[in-house]
């Protein structure tokens, strides 16, 4: 990227972007055409966000924008100015796992792990919206996140396990299973 002879220098000038990333203020120089996926992965080194299709079909790049799941491969980074973005790297609170993270590991909600970040963030947004989501609602919410490994069943079971725990013992993050 820093090669002096590089054609990058002929491109449109970059602009500063200021936004909240995983609860912290983040400033980064971006070009107007950079997607949020590119900026997260290539500029900021947050490779937990994945890419799988380049056209908004697979859901691997899902992040939360102001708490709502969005496809970061279809979102220009400049659109995030002043807004709040959460990636999988922001799900842990300090050293404490989010209950979804432990439940997915315990119950087989993750196999290869490539779709997992997107699935987790979609599920997190769902639980904030519908803490007692039914299986039907979970299916609906995750229908934009393709998984080729699990057949989804253990994903549903992982989310349901967290719901059960949240209902039984509401304030116990990290002990989902």
């Amino acid at each position: 990227m820093n090669d002096a002879a590089g054609s990058v220098l002929q491109e449109a000038p970059e602009q500063p972007l200021l936004f909240m990333l995983n609860g912290e203020q983040q400033r980064v120089w971006v070009s107007a055409r950079n997607t949020l996926t590119e900026v997260l992965r290539e500029r900021l080194g947050l490779t937990g966000t994945k890419h799988g299709c380049e056209l908004g079909e697979c859901g691997a790049c899902t992040v939360l924008l102001d708490g709502n799941p969005v496809l970061s491969c279809l979102l220009l980074a400049v659109e995030c100015e002043g807004r709040s973005v959460e990636t999988v790297e922001g799900m842990m609170q300090g050293a404490k796992l989010h209950p979804l993270q432990s439940a997915f590991a315990e119950l087989g909600g993750t196999q290869c792990g490539y779709c997992t970040s997107g699935v987790l963030l979609t599920a997190k947004a769902l639980l904030e919206r519908q803490p007692a989501a039914t299986r039907g609602q979970i299916r609906e919410a995750l229908s934009g996140n393709l998984c080729r490994c699990t057949g989804y069943q253990q994903i549903f079971e992982s989310v349901e396990e967290v719901i059960r725990h949240m209902q039984g013992k509401p304030a116990e993050p990290g002990s989902a299973s």
Binding site: T47, E89, F104, A105, E106, T110, G113, T116, L120
Partner: peptide, 17 residues
Amino acid sequence: ARIDGLSKTTGQTRFAD
């Protein structure tokens, strides 16, 4: 849980890309 389960749910598994 698999021994690498949490690496995957925290986005820390390092794939080639």
